[in-house]
């Protein structure tokens, strides 16, 4: 009995590690898919979906050039950013629900990981002492300060409904509840989508495709990075985008995700997960194509609206759904 429990635990850990590997391996693919779709949508010649892998490989191989006054912090930051993002990826159920790694970090810790990565990225941006770095750090921290409460409000809404902040358990709770239309979830979904757009540096808050100083947030911070450092940071950004996509899937459309380690359900889980993330990527592409980037001083209004939606979601949840 005990050895049986041990072996099932081992399987669970192996599955968790495997899923994390799939997660980080698939993230550039998603980025490539988004880029390709966007090009098609905008009548441009599209790169192959594999292009992000080629870019990462090229950056990894390149020699390192550092600014003359870069400190150890500048060199350590890419690893901290990648590590924190990797941990976040490990906690999010992608193919299968019951993950032992989900117990390491619940939803609030997940937000903490992103905050940790952002904190060090902003510090590294200030390390060189260029105006661009400071500009990016200042903007990113302000946007984050507004996005984080909205994100946590969404998390609270879900956690209060599911009675847990553990991602695996919360997904399971949504699965068990079946298809119920909760108004609070609707508000939370829109809020989370808006936060995700802001946090991942997409249009309309930031533009990932530009290096123009007036519009940059995230890119301004990492302007001085190159080689393997840049590869790690870019890769982490791709993983982060995928995490947000999977989070939306897990909370609002988890159906199809495997609930045991059976080969059939795992296959269904992989297929369902891929399909849903691809669909979300399409929505993102449409969103980014029809919208223009807003002025920086408008970004607080955008995020304030997200916060308001999240707050409404929570109030709806408290007043209408959990009332006794």
């Amino acid at each position: 009995m005990n050895s049986l429990a041990m072996s099932s635990l081992t399987i669970a850990w192996v599955m968790a590690a495997l899923q994390t590997l799939i997660f980080i391996a698939a993230a550039p693919l998603m980025a490539g898919w988004v880029k390709r779709l966007k090009c098609h949508m905008q009548n441009r010649a599209a790169p192959a979906v594999w292009q992000p892998y080629r870019d990462l490989a090229k950056l990894m191989r390149k020699d390192m050039v550092l600014a003359e006054n870069a400190s150890w912090l500048f060199r350590a930051t890419p690893y901290i950013v990648f590590g924190a993002t990797l941990l976040a990826a490990a906690a999010v159920p992608l193919v299968v629900v019951h993950l032992p790694t989900a117990a390491i970090a619940d939803l609030i810790v997940l937000v903490g990981f992103f905050a940790l990565a952002r904190f060090f990225t902003a510090l590294a941006a200030l390390d060189i002492g260029t105006a661009f770095g400071g500009m990016g750090a200042s903007r990113e921290m302000t946007v984050a300060a507004l996005a984080e409460p909205a994100m946590l409000m969404v998390v609270f809404t879900l956690a209060m409904t599911a009675g847990t902040t553990n991602l695996s358990t919360a997904t399971e709770a949504v699965l068990q509840a079946g298809v119920v239309l909760r108004p609070s979830f609707l508000f939370a979904l829109f809020a989370l989508a808006m936060v995700a757009v802001a946090e991942c540096g997409r249009i309309p808050v930031d533009n990932p495709a530009t290096h123009l100083e007036l519009t940059m947030l995230h890119e301004a911070m990492i302007l001085e990075y190159g080689g393997r450092h840049l590869a790690l940071i870019e890769w982490a950004a791709q993983i982060k985008l995928m995490i947000y996509a999977v989070l939306i899937v897990d909370f609002f459309f988890p159906w199809g995700i495997a609930r045991d380690f059976n080969a059939v359900s795992l296959t269904i889980g992989v297929i369902a997960g891929t399909a849903k993330v691809m669909l979300l990527a399409m929505l993102l592409v449409v969103w980014e194509t029809v919208l223009a980037k807003i002025r920086l001083f408008r970004a607080p209004q955008f995020l304030g609206f997200a916060f308001l939606l999240a707050l409404l979601g929570m109030l709806t949840s408290v007043v209408l759904e959990t009332g006794s």
């Binding site: 006054n69 937000v111 510090l123 200030l126 984050a144 300060a145 984080e148 409460p149 946590l152 609270f156």
Partner: peptide, 26 residues
């Protein structure tokens, strides 16, 4: 709790500033 989240995020911004301006750069 949401206000606490805002506080935490602003504190992070403040310490990026404090550490970044004092110890980093030129």
């Amino acid at each position: 709790a949401a206000m606490l989240a805002l506080t935490g995020a602003l504190a992070a911004a403040c310490f990026v500033k404090a550490f970044g301006i004092a110890f980093l750069g030129r």
